[in-house]
């Protein structure tokens, strides 16, 4: 039996700063040996625990897609002690990684369906994973619509990729910021409002929502109003987490643990849980 508490060693291969304040950084990690790389199979929506030995561990959604086999990508907001130390990492440094953990977005069920992706802020990580995954088998899916919001233009992550996605004619990509700033020509307004405006059709459509709790809370009712049934709205949740394997008793919402029963839940599942978003 493999010990699920032992992190694998991974090497920092590339670091990208995402915003002018340097609070958001993206890390590409590579496996030290080929067999560990081969054994690591995941799907969009899963997460890993990243360790800085001596400091601790924190969970991060995987931002790379399984169709990008050369590295695992994570985007880290500098906010606590572990993420602070992650921000001090340099190319070539070694970090610990446990994963993949949790469940994933229903990519199999989405085949032959339209997909609506709604994201906010730096939670776009697993949504990037999902989008790349869908685009890499584009013919399996129908229309893809993305609504991505951030407080201001600086706080979008993966800005270069957004520019290329916006140019593709096989995705409808909407970006929005909370308040208008000089030079901004895209949409303005909070994600729930913009979702109302864009009004994606619920017909044969799967909706995936991931963002800050407040965004999720106000976006879910909009989707319901647009006619999305609970079984076709999925969201990814977060809680403070330690073990990531359903033992330490910390990340529950109701009788479910985010780490093993989630992080991806359908609206239908969430409605059965008393303690919600």
């Amino acid at each position: 039996m493999a010990n699920p508490y032992i992190p694998l060693q991974m090497k920092v291969q590339r670091i990208e700063t995402e915003d002018p304040d340097r609070t958001l950084r993206t890390y590409d990690l590579t496996f030290l040996n080929e067999s560990e790389k081969e054994a690591f199979r995941y799907l969009p929506g899963q997460f890993c625990e990243i360790s800085i030995l001596g400091k601790g561990e924190s969970p991060f959604g995987i931002a790379s897609s399984p169709t990008e086999p050369d590295y695992l990508r994570f985007t880290v907001n500098r906010t606590g002690s572990v993420t602070n130390d992650i921000h001090y990492l340099r190319n070539g440094d070694i970090v610990g990684m446990r994963g993949p953990l949790g469940n994933w977005y229903p990519v199999e069920d989405m085949k032959g369906m339209n997909v609506l992706i709604v994201g906010g802020g730096f939670a776009f990580t697993t949504l990037r994973s999902l989008l790349i995954y869908l685009l890499d088998s584009r013919d399996d899916y129908m229309d893809i619509t993305v609504i991505y919001g951030a407080r201001n233009p600086d706080l979008f992550i993966y800005k270069d990729e957004i520019a290329t996605w916006k140019q593709r004619d096989d995705i409808q990509f909407h970006v929005t910021i909370d308040k208008l700033v000089d030079g901004w020509t895209e949409k303005t307004g909070f994600v729930p409002t913009v979702t109302q405006e864009v009004a994606p059709s619920p017909d044969n459509t799967m909706a995936i929502v991931c963002g800050p709790p407040i965004m999720i809370k106000y976006t879910l009712p909009v989707l319901t109003e647009l006619g999305f049934p609970d079984e076709r709205i999925y969201t990814s949740l977060e809680r403070r987490m330690k073990c990531g394997i359903g033992k330490c008793g910390r990340c529950n919402i109701g009788s479910k643990y985010i780490c093993i029963d989630g992080p991806v839940f359908s609206m239908a599942e969430l409605k059965k849980i008393p303690e919600t978003v």
Binding site: L53, G54, K242, C243, G249, R250
Partner: peptide, 22 residues
């Protein structure tokens, strides 16, 4: 009760990862 916390105890690059009742 089975809830636990996980902490790294040590100095510099040497130490232990410990789980502690929480």
């Amino acid at each position: 009760c089975h809830c636990f916390d996980v902490q790294d105890e040590g100095k510099g690059k040497k130490g232990k990862r410990v789980r502690i009742w929480d």
